Amino acid sequence: MDDEDLIPLSALQHYLYCPRQCALIHVERLWAESRHTAEGRLMHDRADTAGVEVRHGVRTDTSMPLSAPELGIAGVADIVEFRKGEAGLVPRPVEYKRGKPKAHRADEVQLCAQALCLESMLRCSVPEGALFYGKTRRRQCVVFDEALRALTLDTIQAVRRMLNESRTPKAVYEAKRCDTCSLLELCRPHELTRRMSVRDWLLQQTAEES
């Protein structure tokens, strides 16, 4: 698979958060900056500088390129820590996120995809990783169990189908999700959700007249 055909790891997170957001970014190539995205970008400043550091027996690689061509995914890990294990150095991806832990599993799937890439590249097992959230200033351990791996693989397939079809899902407004999205003005969920089909409009008019 050519590099340009590989799905960005961030697309998996976008898809689980909102399939329409994913399509706007990765199919229609739209983007808009917001306070939230700017804060997230600032959080990544250190991790976005490629480098290697060894401290207290732990090797830390920042901004590490990742890929798993057999799965059709590629991206960059904020941080990958390598700790000594029985079979040698064991990699542990760490992803930085602004905000706080979420109810959905979008961030966990993105992190798990990083682990799948590391397993493909290094031919080793990656049992767990961590998410660091800016608001809590704490790491949240993520175990890459069978359920999370299955959800990650299913998400990769779903994103691949959407990209192949070049299809953007219809807008569905949900206040908690939409109001904090940087693409709110480009997506226009308020307006598009209210639109009726001609058939529904005629049925409504008929009902009102009767």
Score class of each variant (00 low, 15 high):
109 V>L: 02
190 H>M: 10
145 D>L: 03
74 A>Y: 00
66 L>A: 05
47 A>R: 00
72 G>F: 06
97 K>W: 04
207 A>K: 10
22 C>L: 04
148 L>M: 00
197 S>W: 06
132 F>A: 12
171 A>M: 11
130 A>N: 04
104 H>D: 13
100 K>C: 08
175 A>W: 03
91 P>F: 00
103 A>K: 15
51 G>C: 07
146 E>V: 12
69 P>M: 04
12 L>N: 05
103 A>G: 05
28 E>N: 14
196 M>S: 14
40 G>D: 07
177 R>K: 13
131 L>Q: 04
98 R>H: 07
148 L>N: 00
107 D>T: 10
157 Q>H: 11
209 E>W: 08
35 R>E: 10
50 A>G: 09
182 S>I: 07
52 V>W: 08
207 A>I: 07
165 E>S: 13
115 A>I: 01
134 G>T: 07
183 L>I: 05
97 K>G: 08
149 R>Q: 09
134 G>E: 03
118 L>C: 06
150 A>H: 14
189 P>N: 05
113 A>V: 06
100 K>M: 10
192 L>Y: 15
28 E>A: 15
72 G>R: 12
78 D>C: 13
180 T>V: 14
194 R>K: 13
160 R>S: 10
193 T>E: 15
42 L>T: 11
65 P>A: 15
168 T>V: 15
38 A>R: 15
111 L>A: 02
191 E>A: 12
7 I>R: 02
84 K>Y: 02
76 V>P: 00
199 R>V: 13
196 M>D: 13
40 G>A: 07
187 C>A: 08
112 C>E: 01
12 L>T: 07
80 V>W: 01
114 Q>T: 10
170 K>N: 08
145 D>R: 05
11 A>M: 11
23 A>T: 13
162 M>C: 08
53 E>Y: 10
95 E>K: 09
165 E>L: 11
28 E>L: 15
154 D>N: 10
26 H>W: 14
45 D>T: 15
198 V>R: 15
151 L>P: 02
48 D>C: 12
63 S>T: 05
191 E>Y: 09
25 I>F: 01
206 T>H: 02
139 R>D: 12
73 I>C: 04
128 E>V: 05
69 P>H: 05
184 L>M: 06
55 R>W: 12
46 R>G: 15
31 W>H: 14
